[in-house]
Design a protein around this nucleic acid. Structure first.
Ligand code: MN
Ligand code: MN
Ligand code: ZN
Ligand code: ZN
Lengths: 143, 143
DNA sequence: ATTCTTTTTGATATAGCTTATCAATTTCAA
DNA sequence: TTGAAATTGATAAGCTATATCAAAAAGAAT
């Protein structure tokens, strides 16, 4: 049984349901993706260039977006770059981002989530999504 | 005394301090900017085209970025578009954004801010900036 | 295994938004 | 009034992501 059997199964189910095909590229990209917590399309492109020099950048983008539709990934826009977040094994969370070294730390805070709902209700809004990012310096970069 | 005398003064002080010049375009753009809470460069371009059809889009961008440096504006990236936020008369705040009609509501919540600091400290981070946006539907768009 | 339809891929063009370039113009201090 | 320095407007270029399209691959049916 492969290391990423469960996620591979989720992908295959999504593919079947939408009459899409299982390809060598999709398998390759999923394997690489699941080894990371957060990765950009560009990083993945360079990383996979070693395994398959002919893999196109457009295919990387298309496939990562496919993973988003299948619920395995989420696109996150941090600063200027777009990180694809491997959410196959985790629930909702927000991020701390170090502007020094690029380190990303995930966190969950129910109190903040609850206060957000309160703010929305007070203003007559119904929240569908939100975005909370804390930018700063990590311990190492502060020194 | 002009309606935007105070802000005009802030701009002039910034210009002097940085050996920049006070121009007709900067005055025109500041006047238009201060009438809005949030505006995109593109919107401002079209709005001012009536008053001065020769005003270039690059000048709009340059000038709005100048206002950011002078502390009169802040660039905010909501969804795909960049809104310039008129912060001349207000302190820190976050936003509720209606994905139906584009309405933007500002809010301040000390409890959320405090919890953010807590989260950062717990993870060894020192926050320099943050970003909190709540996306959803306003009362009108929900019906 | 072969055929055949549909989807996918890779190379590249294009889009959308913002900044860079640069000659001509304007500002403003001397 | 003069002249150095900054600004402007038109447009090219940069950057990231998507669109295009002919060739290739997938996979169901035979
Ligand atoms: Mn994450
Ligand atoms: Mn605002
Ligand atoms: Zn760091
Ligand atoms: Zn609305």
């Amino acid at each position: 049984m492969s290391k990423h059997a469960k996620e591979m199964e989720i992908l295959k189910e999504h593919l079947e349901k939408h009459q899409l095909k299982f390809t060598r590229q999709r398998e390759l990209i999923l394997d690489a993706f699941l080894k990371q917590e957060h990765i950009t399309a560009e990083e993945m492109y360079h990383q996979l260039a070693r395994k398959d020099p002919h893999l196109g950048l457009a295919t990387i983008y298309r496939t990562l977006n496919l993973f988003c539709e299948a619920g395995l990934a989420q696109a996150r826009h941090f600063g200027t770059q777009t990180q694809y977040d491997n959410v196959s094994h985790k629930g909702h969370h927000d991020h701390l981002i170090c502007t020094g070294c690029g380190k990303i730390v995930e966190f969950e805070n129910c109190d903040i989530e609850r206060l957000q709902e309160e703010v929305a209700t007070k203003n007559g809004f119904t929240i569908t999504t939100h975005r909370l990012e804390l930018y700063g310096l990590c311990t190492r970069c502060r020194h």
